[in-house]
Design a protein around this nucleic acid. Sequence first.
RNA 1: GGUGGAGUGGCUGAGCGGCCCAAAGCAACAGCCUGCAAAGCUGUAAACCCACGGGUUCAAAUCCCGUCUCCACCUCCA
Length: 468
Amino acid sequence: MTFSLFDSRTQSLRAFVPLNEGQVGIYLCGPTVQGLPHVGHLRSALVYDQLRRWLEVKGFDVTLVRNVTDIDDKVLENADNTGEEWWALAYRFEVEFNKAYSLLAIKPPTYEPRATGAIPEMIALIERLIEAGYAYRAEDDSANVYFAADKWADYGELTNQRIHDMDADAEADLRGKRSPHDFALWKAQKLGEPESAAWSTPFGEGRPGWHIECSAMATKYLGSNFDIHGGGLDLRFPHHENELAQSRAAGDKFANYWLHNGLVNVQGQKMSKSLGNSIFAADLLGQAKPAVVRYYLGSAHYRSVLDYHDGVLTEAETAFGRIQNFVSRAQRSLGDIHLGAQVIDYLPEAFITAMDEDLAIPAALASLHDTVREGNTALDSNDQAALLKAAQSVIAMLDVLGLDHSDANSGDNGESRVLDALIQGLIAERNAARAAKDFARSDAIRDQLKAAGVSIEDAADGTHWSVI
RNA sequence: GGUGGAGUGGCUGAGCGGCCCAAAGCAACAGCCUGCAAAGCUGUAAACCCACGGGUUCAAAUCCCGUCUCCACCUCCA
């Protein structure tokens, strides 16, 4: 029953031991809502959703905090371009993110704080840092406040770097910094920036630096010491390094485990605005069902690079369709399949082992497919007991992975009843034609249905249909 | 310059000292089933032994050294 996670800070697989027995606190860096959600955002949110679900299956009471960065240079810049209020733009994109998350069955976090809702906590944290001598007000008398990176001896501990090895940009404008490695805790209001984007503080008018937001929000909701901090690999430096430095310098223990998910590449290349190769949530969800997208995003280990290119969704669709097909066949044979309260009791050993080892979802999927094959074999040989066992097992695994197995044909609305009646009529006609050996007619009906997006399956117990 | 990661069958992608003559999926081929298909099952072929060259070990895809190639981070980024 041990559960291990790869901790980026120690760069090792560590057995997970929660601070408080039976409870887990997770802080996840959410998006800066300055644009539309892309495949990378989805993967990141999904990884931690899977982690959360697995911990819940294992009986933990999980508190998941995923923030929304709603104030930032880019938000202001983009709002300036569209002519919207910055907060209106932020809300607009936040809604888009939540829509995508919800489609993908990513459970809402326990708390989803916005950065602008934690300004007092940020100010308090900055004051503690100034007092402790790790932060200073800008040399140029602006409202900027910086963290003195070289004063904090452990700076670089998260990413195993030394300050003097870092590639500092010697040309950069210091803006009142003492050293180029220092980073902003508080940013002075700039000329032309809206009043609504500036808060009054003891240091002057301005807005928060990016890193301080997460430190403040994480400890506000999870306490000064909590279990897991997660985010995308690209946030490891400088964002997480800075978070860790400032929180520790302020006297907080902060996170016990650091998790980083791999990024999504597009045809072997990094996704970026300048390359114009970004794949947005809408692109994926327009091409395939949400469960298929979810399956695809889980097809590589969370720490590996996931490559996106043409055909990946089709492949996921076929693979996932095989699983769904089995569930439909099993349900036809067994009727509705119910699970008891303890989902974990239905999971194969191999599946549990895989999930327990740093959330090895690809290996877990292998176990899922193995079970589907066993179930199909049981179905073909009419072994009802073995079929039920396999079917329950498969449904339990899909449940844990958050993959929707519901039959597309089920549903109780009027339209689906009408549709079923019409299709059943055609199926009856086709079977009559087959009985009369009028295969030209029967094939024509099959083609007609296929053209309409309906596939049919001739089974021992009759003909069944499903939407392709 | 620094830090981290990767190179496994046609493709995706696990494995990270013996259970590996390397999982699972996709694609391919054959058989069973079918009027023919689809779905399903079974089997076959697929990785000149897991980038290349050395080494350690009774034992290496897995550890060490060297080489090559690729990627990421060190600037905003999930």
